[in-house]
C-alpha cells in the first residue's frame, strides 16, 4: 500500500481541487479494501469475486477497477498492509527482551495474536502463494523482508550477548524460523489447534533450530 500515500503527497503540491479528488480516491480505495478483507476472510480468495466486493463496498465494478488493476492486486495490497502492521507489532514485542528465545517467542506471539483471529484470510494468503505470479511473489517477498530482518537482528543480538555462535548462515536460520512459523498454521487450519497449541509447538521447534547455534 506504499504507493497510496505517495500519490496523495504528489497531488498535494497541485491545486486544491485535485487534492480533494485524490482524497476521494483514497477513500474509495479504503472502502474497497475493507469490503475485500471481509469477503476474503469469509470466502477465501477464489470465493470472493470483484463483483461481490464492489457490491459489499456499495459501488460499481468499474469503480473498483479504477482503483485496482485486478483481484490479485487488491489481495496483494491487503497482505502488504498486514505485513507492515505485523512488522511493527513484532518489533514492539521484542523490546526489552534479554534472551534470544524470549525475544523470538514474544515476536511470534505477536504474530499469532495478529494472524490467528483472521485465520481464514491468512490461510487464503498461503493457498494463493502457491500459484501466484512472479510479480506477486516479488511483492510478497519485499513485504516479508522487514520481518526476516527483525528475526535476524535478534539472532545477531544473541551472538553479541554470547548466547549463540555464528555457526551457520544466519539468514538461512532467520528464514527457517519464519517459515516454521508460517507452516505451523496448517495445524490450526486442518486440526483445529488453538493459538496456544501452536505456540507450544513453535517454542520447541525454535529450541531445536537454535540448539546447534548455542554457545
Amino acid at each position: 500500500m506504499n504507493h497510496v500515500p505517495m500519490r496523495v503527497i504528489a497531488a498535494s503540491t497541485r491545486p486544491a481541487k485535485i487534492t480533494r479528488r485524490a482524497l476521494a480516491k483514497q477513500q474509495t480505495r479504503e472502502k474497497v479494501l475493507l469490503a475485500a478483507r471481509q469477503l476474503f476472510t469469509e470466502r477465501g480468495y477464489e470465493g470472493a469475486t470483484i463483483r461481490d466486493i464492489a457490491r459489499a463496498a456499495g459501488m460499481s465494478t468499474g469503480a473498483v477497477f479504477a482503483s485496482f488493476a485486478d483481484k490479485s492486486e487488491l489481495f496483494g495490497d491487503i497482505l502488504t498492509a498486514d505485513h507492515a502492521a505485523l512488522t511493527e507489532a513484532m518489533s514492539d514485542a521484542a523490546q526489552g527482551k534479554t534472551t534470544v528465545d524470549s525475544a523470538l517467542m514474544a515476536m511470534f506471539k505477536a504474530g499469532y495474536d495478529f494472524h490467528y483471529p483472521q485465520l481464514p484470510l491468512f490461510a487464503a494468503g498461503v493457498a494463493v502463494s502457491w500459484t501466484w505470479t512472479e510479480s506477486s511473489e516479488q511483492r510478497n517477498r519485499e513485504a516479508v523482508r522487514p520481518i526476516r530482518d527483525l528475526i535476524l537482528q535478534q539472532l545477531r543480538a544473541g551472538v553479541e550477548r554470547g548466547e549463540l555462535v555464528e555457526r551457520h548462515d544466519m539468514r538461512l536460520v532467520a528464514s527457517t524460523l519464519w517459515d516454521t512459523y508460517v507452516r505451523s498454521y496448517r495445524r490450526a487450519v486442518f486440526d483445529g489447534w488453538s493459538s496456544d497449541d501452536l505456540q507450544t509447538l513453535l517454542r520447541d521447534q525454535v529450541a531445536l533450530i537454535l540448539a546447534g547455534l548455542r554457545a
Binding site: 502463494s129 511473489e137 555457526r167 551457520h168 538461512l172 531445536l208 533450530i209 540448539a211 546447534g212 547455534l213
Partner: peptide, 27 residues
C-alpha cells in the same frame, strides 16, 4: 518450484543446508 520454477537440484541444495542446520542441534 511454484514461484521461481526452481529445479530439483536447487531445492535439494537448500534442503541440504536446512538438514545440516537441524543436525547441528541433533548431534
Amino acid at each position: 518450484a511454484a514461484q521461481r520454477r526452481a529445479t530439483a537440484q536447487e531445492m535439494s541444495d537448500l534442503m541440504d543446508r536446512q538438514i545440516l542446520l537441524l543436525f547441528n542441534g541433533l548431534k
